[in-house]
Simulated scan of single mutants.
Amino acid sequence: MTENERPAATPAPFRLVYVPGVTPTKWLRVWQERLPDVPVALLQHAPADGHALLLAGGADAGLVRLPVDRTVLSAIPLYTETTVVVFPKDHWLAAAEEVTAADLAEEVVFHPLDDSLDWPELPGRPAFERPATTADAIELVAANVGVLAVPQSLARLHHRRDLTYRTLVDVPQSQVALAWPEEATTDLVEEFIGIVRGRTANSSRGRTAAAEEQRRPSATGKKRTAQAGSPKAVPKSAAKARPKPGQRAGGGRTAQPKRGGSGGGGRKK
């Protein structure tokens, strides 16, 4: 195999970490359309582990829940999630259209260690101990031991037929953001920023836009080509000023020699 026949090296993947409940599918679909030659390595981690991975340089960017360490990480808030309370289907809260924190005053409310809601004060009665994960807390709710307040996406992620949920109003909400190490803002990170912000391929500031700019002929080049390939147009003012045959530039006609006269054009007798 000659050097020219060697297959091109596969580009290093863009490493994207995301936390449970966040779905990056719609953004990855656009990525594959714009950069089909650059693979994406998806890394799912718990919220705290996702932040640690970004800080350690183990991922190029992450779809995480705020807050993050803004002294090291840059972050762009994307959306805010509705908070819901999860409980068994036969629970008395199922009769309500929405639930307030005051409605939970007599309920045991679980507070898992991986909770992503910044509670100033957890509503209801505290459980005997904190479950390690949201999944563990869901199991306790299914056993009718208490209820659980979570972002709506996590309630859907841990859906069970014997459980339901209602919107929990006047409580903290979870905010999802795109974060990346501030000192490692690469072209690929810029590409992903453009995608999540809804920029078109032409307006993106990353590699796609640079490649498109190189393929696009410059305005100066177009102008020179047009000048070289087409005849110069004659201004109307110049066309009007050009004298017709037999006409002076001032507008009168030139004198024609008379036949048979004394002028140089006559025949000598």
Rank of each mutant, 00 (worst) to 15 (best):
P7C: 09
T10A: 13
P11N: 05
A12E: 15
P13G: 15
F14V: 08
R15F: 03
L16I: 01
L16G: 11
L16N: 02
V17H: 02
V17D: 08
V19I: 06
P20K: 10
G21D: 07
G21M: 06
G21A: 13
P24D: 10
T25M: 09
K26Y: 01
W27Q: 04
L28I: 03
R29G: 09
R29Y: 04
W31H: 07
W31Y: 05
R34I: 01
L35F: 01
L35Q: 13
P36F: 02
D37R: 11
D37S: 14
D37P: 02
P39R: 06
V40H: 11
V40F: 09
A41G: 03
L42I: 02
L43C: 01
L43R: 12
Q44A: 02
Q44I: 03
H45R: 11
H45T: 07
A46R: 14
A46E: 11
P47N: 06
A48K: 12
A48R: 12
D49H: 08
H51K: 10
L53T: 12
L54R: 12
L54P: 07
A56R: 14
G57A: 05
G58M: 06
G58T: 03
A59F: 04
A59M: 09
D60N: 14
A61M: 08
G62L: 08
G62Y: 12
L63Q: 07
V64T: 03
V64L: 15
P67A: 14
V68M: 13
D69S: 11
R70W: 00
T71A: 15
T71I: 00
V72L: 15
A75P: 01
A75S: 13
L78G: 10
L78S: 06
T82F: 00
V84Y: 02
V85A: 13
V85E: 12
V86E: 01
V86T: 01
F87K: 02
P88M: 04
D90R: 12
A96G: 10
E97M: 06
E97T: 11
E97F: 03
E98V: 09
E98Y: 09
V99R: 06
A102I: 09
A102G: 12
D103A: 13
D103S: 08
V108Q: 08
V108E: 05
F110Y: 09
F110A: 01
D114P: 07
D114E: 07
D114Y: 00
D115T: 12
D115F: 03
S116K: 07
S116H: 01
L117H: 13
D118Q: 15
D118M: 10
D118V: 14
P120N: 12
P120Q: 15
L122R: 13
G124C: 07
A127C: 03
F128G: 04
E129F: 09
P131I: 04
P131W: 03
A132Y: 11
T133V: 07
T133R: 01
T134V: 10
T134K: 04
A135T: 06
D136A: 11
A137S: 04
A142V: 04
N144M: 09
N144Y: 10
V145C: 05
V145T: 04
V147N: 08
V147M: 08
